[in-house]
Design a protein around this nucleic acid. Structure first.
Lengths: 210, 210
DNA sequence: CCCGTGATGTCAGTTCCTGCCATCACCGTA
DNA sequence: TACGGTGATGGCAGGAACTGACATCACGGG
């Protein structure tokens, strides 16, 4: 066995999720994951570019699903198109992963800084992809980026409520709820925040970075 | 020289920004940065937890500034409070860094995947901090997270316009503009996106991850 | 003048990741 | 059947990012 057995990437994914959940991400070496899958460490890096990516390879499929839906949906507003695309991605994700596995994975990712970092990167790439899809529909780039960012934040809110909830509401329903919360928040906000007319406040800022 | 010279972290920051901009981030080793600063590689890791962090240590000061402003601002809506806090952070950042250095740094960060990843992590930490500040003011946690996320997206839009613009508008002005764009986008959006009533679409999703 | 404290240097070791080459299973073809 | 091509894999060497342990040096106080 081992050599020439089918679906090496799938076995590596399963082994990684198991071991990371058992011992923790940092306490598990790539060699451990490969051994559990009956493969060598070198082969792991032939299927995944680095140790984190073994947990994130579905993001490309989600991105493709969302951008396709944005491009196909009827031309409404930019934010509406972005939310419609993410709704399609939400139903696809819900069907492909399921609540229980999403919960296990979310617990693992949020408990490890290195994995949270990669997840935020995927988030940014998804937002950029949505923005490009909106721009391809004629939306000006700045507006497209802002609309995509707002939609992704709304999606994140829905996802958090989904995995943190009691399971009575699906991800798509949570997205509708979050969209309503978005509208309510913006409606009740003061139209323009006071931009602090005085000079730069005397904050203890050294070389401040964004 | 070298040993016992003052401001080792500052020298390491300057050396890192220089070398990363000259040769690129990946082509520069930590030993190179330390040598340029007249220090050893081991000392670098005593001042910064990893190679990326040498470019991001101002984020803690920004976070402190923003959360303080959120806590101090008059009790308006959650989104308004978040935007007010980020406006205070914007003016502080603008005064402490300046457009030219922000441009150099932004070009370096956006051109390197590893650095973009860390920047997204800082973004998420800032959003979480704002959400905690809102929650401390009595805002329910879910609403606080959504409002903080919206405000940070708006801030990002303003920041991108600032470093990408012609220099005629300051960061604070860009934030006012982005806030207006936020309100306009949400106002023109359809109130609720159609949540795709059919079954899960037959997308080619394997183990899809958020 | 000596000693404690803190920043630094040096060294060894682990892990992540990469390039290079040999090996093995499968598949089509003579 | 025998043979060569193709693709996935294993093994090895090595670089770079970190980390722990210990020695060393400068400075301030007694």
């Amino acid at each position: 066995m081992g050599r020439w057995a089918d679906d090496a990437p799938g076995r590596l994914r399963a082994a990684a999720l198991d071991l990371f959940s058992e011992r923790g991400y940092e306490a598990t070496t790539v060699a451990d994951v490969a051994a559990r899958a009956g493969l060598s460490e070198r082969t792991f890096f032939r299927h995944f570019p680095d140790k984190r990516e073994v947990l994130f390879d579905g993001s490309r499929a989600l991105e493709a699903e969302v951008t396709a839906a944005v491009g196909a949906c009827g031309a409404s507003s930019a934010l509406g198109a972005a939310l419609t695309g993410l709704a399609a991605g939400a139903t696809a994700l819900e069907g492909a992963v399921g609540l229980e596995r999403a919960r296990v994975r979310a617990r693992l990712v949020t408990s490890t800084a290195e994995l949270r970092e990669r997840e935020q990167m995927k988030r940014a790439e998804l937002s950029d992809a949505v923005a490009r899809s909106l721009a391809a529909r004629g939306c000006p780039p700045g507006e497209a980026a802002l609309a995509a960012g707002l939609a992704v934040v709304t999606f994140e809110s829905a996802f958090a409520a989904w995995v943190g909830g009691d399971g009575t509401r699906g991800l798509a329903e949570e997205l509708v709820r979050a969209t309503g919360a978005l509208a309510a928040l913006v409606a009740t906000a003061t139209p323009a925040p006071p931009p602090e007319p005085g000079p730069a406040p005397p904050g203890p800022l050294g070389t401040m970075a964004p």
